[in-house]
Design a protein around this nucleic acid. Structure first.
Lengths: 147, 147
DNA sequence: ATTTTGTTTTAGAATAATTCTTGATCTCAA
DNA sequence: TTGAGATCAAGAATTATTCTAAAACAAAAT
């Protein structure tokens, strides 16, 4: 049978990562998986409350931290705005539209690591690429509004 | 005579950028230029107070914002830590040592922009590359401490 | 030179995101 | 089942940053 990408995988991911799988963590994770955008902790909280009304914002922060710590999700930061969270574990960058606030995953080519030079002896454990600009639909909107 | 890289240049940069050159802005800029590290607003404030005891933290924030806005300096962010400021305008990335907190400029090769693919119609106005890891001297220190 | 207009500075208050604290609850292993 | 340790919830606390309002200043217009 085909590999299910949903629960088993997340369950495995969490247990393998060493963090304990609790109902709250599973629910936060599923709330994050539910949509392909990059919600803030507050947005995750508002979604998570629908299926688990007793959950608190602090718990959502705890869960997101634990999941990030365990490598099950990624925290994404742009400038000083609220952190956003991303369940896509494949290495990728992020594009932030300064017009509409949308956040997209950006696939990276393997050539990326050849694009920088660190002093010898430096160990790079994490690379983060953030792009900012105007997304396709905002560019389009501006173009037509100027006719 | 050789081009002086200091005052005339910064003066020009500020006036050309459209922001008014005030004593506070000049002093904040010079405090930032004084050392090649990447100070936080609070660190700039503490340094700036030495030569201008009446300056306030809010003014340092205002000045750093104005200078950033005018393109005279860059704001550098890593994770959710305090913003840091960088007077190096040549495009470059940043390396953050998670052991000692040092921040280094990382030269970028021109191949960088070929390393990502944005959907057609997307306009990228700003690219930011942040690396995290262990710097050379921390790596060295760990190596010798394990003997 | 004086007034006007708009900008900047300052000090302190306010805000917003996040973290901390505490006691209650839960989970797992012995 | 009991005990140790982890997690949860609620709200307080913290921290970086921004805002507010009044005073000082600068440039332009009279």
């Amino acid at each position: 049978m085909p590999t299910p990408i949903s629960h088993e995988t997340s369950h495995e991911a969490m247990t393998r990562s060493g963090i304990r799988l609790t109902p709250q963590r599973r629910h936060v994770y599923e709330s994050l998986m539910a949509t392909p955008d990059h919600p803030t902790a507050l947005e995750v909280f508002m979604r998570a409350k629908k299926g688990m009304p007793s959950i608190s914002l602090a718990t959502v922060y705890n869960c997101l931290d634990a999941l990030t710590e365990g490598g099950v999700i990624r925290q994404v930061n742009c400038e000083r705005a609220s952190s956003r969270y991303c369940p896509n574990l494949v290495p990728h960058g992020h594009f932030f539209c300064k017009e509409c606030g949308a956040v997209f995953d950006i696939p990276l080519k393997p050539s990326l690591e050849a694009s920088w030079e660190v002093p010898s002896g430096t160990l790079v454990s994490h690379a983060e690429l953030n792009l900012r600009g105007t997304c396709g639909s905002c560019t389009q909107r501006f173009k037509t509004s100027k006719l």
